[in-house]
Structures are given as structure tokens and as C-alpha cells.
Simulated scan of single mutants.
Amino acid sequence: MTFPQLKFQDFLHPRPQPKGIDVQCKLQHFALITYAIEPARFQDIIPARFQLDTIQYQGAEKALMSVVPFIDVDFTSAVYPFPKFTMGQTNYRVYVIDQKTQERCVWFIGTTLDSWTLIVPRYLWQLPWHAANFEFDCQQNASGLYQQYKMQTRSEWAGAELHLTQSEEDAWQYQGFPDLESYQVFLTHPLAGFYHRRDGQLGTYRVWHDRLQPKPAQLHHARFELLARMNLVSFEDQLKPYSVLIEPINAFTIYLPPAILEK
């Protein structure tokens, strides 16, 4: 199996005009800690509508899953004057293909959020979002690289610990992809997300962002309780990620409300 070549020029498009309750925000200390996982481990997680978007890695077919922590800053309406919120968040996402549209997208196992505003996505829209308390301790050097990136999450659903650093010597890892750009498109540019709502129905929402500009980093410590509990990545293997990326800040638009789909 040869992974196809992906080009940003085929995926980038102008920002759709926000309306209604669409929101915009900046994601600070945006990290992608990605693991290569045996596809069979997702057998009871990913619905039949979706196909795992796999690569060949270390002699076997592997699915990729990312843990994505960041701090939402300037989270506000994209349309109207509105208060701005700041909150820690981590998304747990698997890269898939929607077999109805052939779009490359992500399947959200769930999200942790450090904000009272959790009541809206969790209870009004039935998203698989869970309460958490976050602590970020991040220090960057003059060139913006992270001398230290530490994050701790206290959560009944998905407690987490993370310690990363960055240097100019950190190398890109994209084994299984034909080139660096294909890896970057795959990992950083899915614009549609799907998930099981808390009531069991299939939900989706879309985002928009320009080309992201993360750089490689090194993992020194990781402990993601959710991945171990779901038998996706053991605590030992969590110390051996497929790749690690960090971007200091970027801008997203989120199109709301989420939709309910037929399975």
C-alpha cells in the first residue's frame, strides 16, 4: 500500500463567511502528539461509515491518532461583539476517511475542557466533552522554540501528563508518507470532525484555519490515562510516539451548531 501524495494547494480555501453562532479563537501552545496504532484496536470505536486512514509504518499497517492539547484564547463570537474566554482543552482524534464523501477527516473519541462553558457542548449539543482542570507551564526561547512545554490535566475521564522540549536539531518524522508535505496536510489540515454524541447519535462539525506551521519537538514524558484505559496505547508505548509537533499559536473558526447525521 502506497500512501497518496497530498498537496496543500488542493486543501486550502478561503474562509467561509461566519454567521449565526459561529465562533473564532486562537489556539495557544498547540501540540500534536501522534501515535501509530494497530487498526484492530479501533474495531469497536470507529463506525462503519468511516475507514481508518492508514500508513505503512515499521513493516505494518498502522492507524494514526493524535492527542492535541492547547489553550483557547480570545474565544468569542465570529459575528457579534461578545466576551472573550480562555480555557485549556485537549482533543483525542483518529484520522479517518468519510466513505460517503471520501473526505479526509478526524474521528473524535472525546475532548476535555477547563471551563464552565462546557455545559453548552456537553448538554445542549451532546458532544463527548468532559470536565477537566489544566495546568500549562510553557517557556519559549527568543526564536519561539519551547525550552519547556509541560501540561497536566486532572480529569475523571482523561487525566494526562505531558513534558516536551524543542530545539533546532529536532527532525521531522514522516515515515509512511511520500514526502513531508503529505504528512503535514494529513496531520494538520482535516477540517471536518465526527463523533458519537452522548445520546449515541452521529454528530459532526466543521472548522476553518489557514495552513498551520508547527515544528517538530521531543517527548520526555507522557501519561494519557484514556489511551491506556481504552487499550489503544500502553503507558510504556506512550513514551514512543510516532511524531510530536508544536505551534505557539494559530487561529481557528468553528462553524456551529454541530449537526446530527444519519449513520
Rank of each mutant, 00 (worst) to 15 (best):
Glu168Ile: 14
Asp22Ser: 10
Gln58Thr: 00
Gln56Trp: 15
Leu261Gly: 05
Phe3Ile: 05
Ala132Lys: 10
Gln238Pro: 03
Ile246Val: 12
Phe50Val: 01
Trp129His: 15
Ile260Gly: 11
Pro190His: 10
Lys240Ser: 05
Ser182Leu: 13
Lys19Ala: 09
Arg198Met: 05
Ser66Ile: 08
Val120Phe: 15
Asn141Ser: 05
Trp125Gly: 02
Asp179Arg: 06
Pro69Ile: 13
Asp44Ile: 14
Glu262Pro: 00
Arg211Trp: 05
Ile45Gly: 00
Pro18Gln: 14
Ala60Cys: 12
Ile37Asn: 04
Lys19Asp: 08
Leu113Tyr: 04
Leu32Ser: 06
Val207Phe: 09
Thr86Ile: 09
Thr86Leu: 06
Ile119Asp: 06
Ala251Phe: 13
Val79Asp: 07
Leu180Tyr: 14
Ile97His: 07
Phe3Gln: 10
Leu12Met: 04
Gln166Ala: 04
Met230Ser: 06
His221Ser: 03
Pro178His: 07
Val120Gln: 02
Val96Ile: 09
Lys62Leu: 11
His189Asn: 03
Val185Pro: 06
Asn141Gly: 04
Leu239Met: 11
Trp172Arg: 15
Gly193Asn: 11
Phe194Ile: 10
Asn141Glu: 07
Glu169Ser: 08
Val23Gly: 08
Glu161His: 12
Gln166Ile: 03
Pro190Val: 00
Lys215Asp: 02
Leu124Pro: 13
Lys19Val: 14
Met87Ser: 09
Gln166Val: 05
Ala251Ser: 05
Asp179Gln: 07
Trp107Lys: 11
Ile109Lys: 10
Gln17Trp: 12
Arg49Val: 02
Gln102Glu: 14
Tyr123Ile: 10
Pro69Glu: 11
Val207Met: 14
Asp10Gly: 08
Pro128His: 03
Ser77Thr: 13
Gly193Val: 02
Ser77Phe: 10
Glu161Phe: 06
Leu113Pro: 04
Arg211Cys: 02
Lys150Gly: 04
Glu161Asn: 04
Thr253Phe: 08
Lys150Asn: 08
Glu181Gly: 13
Leu187Ser: 01
Asn231Lys: 15
Leu256Trp: 04
Thr188Cys: 01
Trp208Gly: 03
Gln126Pro: 06
Trp157Tyr: 07
Leu12Cys: 04
Ala217Asn: 02
Gly144Lys: 15
Lys84Arg: 15
Leu127Glu: 02
Gly110Ala: 07
Gly59Arg: 15
Asn231Phe: 08
Gln43His: 02
Ser143Trp: 12
Tyr123Trp: 14
Lys263Gly: 03
Val207Ile: 13
Tyr205His: 12
Lys84Leu: 01
Thr117Asp: 10
Ala192His: 07
Pro257Gly: 01
Gln184Trp: 02
Pro121Val: 04
Arg104Tyr: 05
Pro121Ala: 00
Lys215Phe: 05
Gln139Gly: 00
Trp157Ser: 04
Ile37Ala: 00
His221Val: 02
Arg206Trp: 02
Ile119Trp: 13
Thr112Ala: 10
Gln43Asn: 08
Phe42Lys: 14
Gly159Gln: 15
Val67Glu: 08
Asp22Ala: 11
Lys263Ile: 13
Phe224Tyr: 11
